[in-house]
Amino acid sequence: MRSQSTNKLIKNIIIYILLILLAFLMLVPFVWMVTASLKMNKDIFVIPYQWLNPEPRWLNYIDIWTKIPLAKYALNTVKLTIIVTILQILTSSFAAYAFAKLQFKGRNILFLAYIATIAVPWQVYMVPQFIFMRNLGLADTHLAIIILQAFSAFGVFLMRQFYEGIPDSLCEAARIDGMSEYKIYAQIMLPLSKPALSTLTIFTFVNTWNDFLGPLIYLTTDSKKTLQIGIKMFISQYSAEYGLIMAASVLSLIPVLIVFIALQKYFVAGITTGAVKG
């Protein structure tokens, strides 16, 4: 009996040691980021590192807005993220409704086309896609980024999975009542699919907000750039402006942090939809 409780104690001690290590590993970079963002450049790489700064330099958070057009970058990113997310949700849920609840010729073939392209990484066709968009006059436009992100096969797939779980009898009953398919979609399916919509929203939001390679290829004019590309350019040009770089980084993380904390459970649900067999 006694050895069992000692065992348990040892187990608990090990667990808590591991947890403390984990917390360090995950949090130290972010704490360092925030503390460094409040320092002068010359105070950042000193030994030992000053974790508590008696005179935080808030000026970094003011200077960064004038050093680079951060507000413009942020505005561009917000604009793109909102438009892409809305388009993605509308078109995906719309198409998914037909794939899940309507009978028509070519349904399986069309759906197969979607599934097959999930297996083709974007990096494989990013070059011809760019050339194609350039020929349409879409290089260096926000419209290109919107098109790039708004019609993903993933969204259709995710929404269809969810709609399949809603009983067909619900739609049948509505049809007998004389509701049109559009009404059934808008008044029955859409309200029922809030969890899946939330999952898709947060995925699209985070992907668009953090997208790097797309804007890097397409956006060349400075005033059109997104936060990610803008900050990267700033880092390349002023690699020794440590304090400002960290301030910009902190600012760019805040929206993601807020959305993530608010919608975290839908995120986890989205990951496990694809992962767990069933």
Binding site: L90, T91, S92, F94, A95, Y97, A98, F99, L102, Q103, F104, K105, R107, L110, A113, Y114, T117, V120, V124, Y125, M126, V127, P128, Q129, I131, F132, M133, I147, L148, A150, F151, A153, G155, V156, E181, Y182, Y185
Partner: peptide
Amino acid sequence: QALIAYSFIAPNFLGFAVFTLGPIILAFIM
């Protein structure tokens, strides 16, 4: 019924076919 179904799929599928399927085929040619 089929027309209604296609109208649901069209907005996403057009974008998908033109900007994803097309470039994938082009990649193989290029």
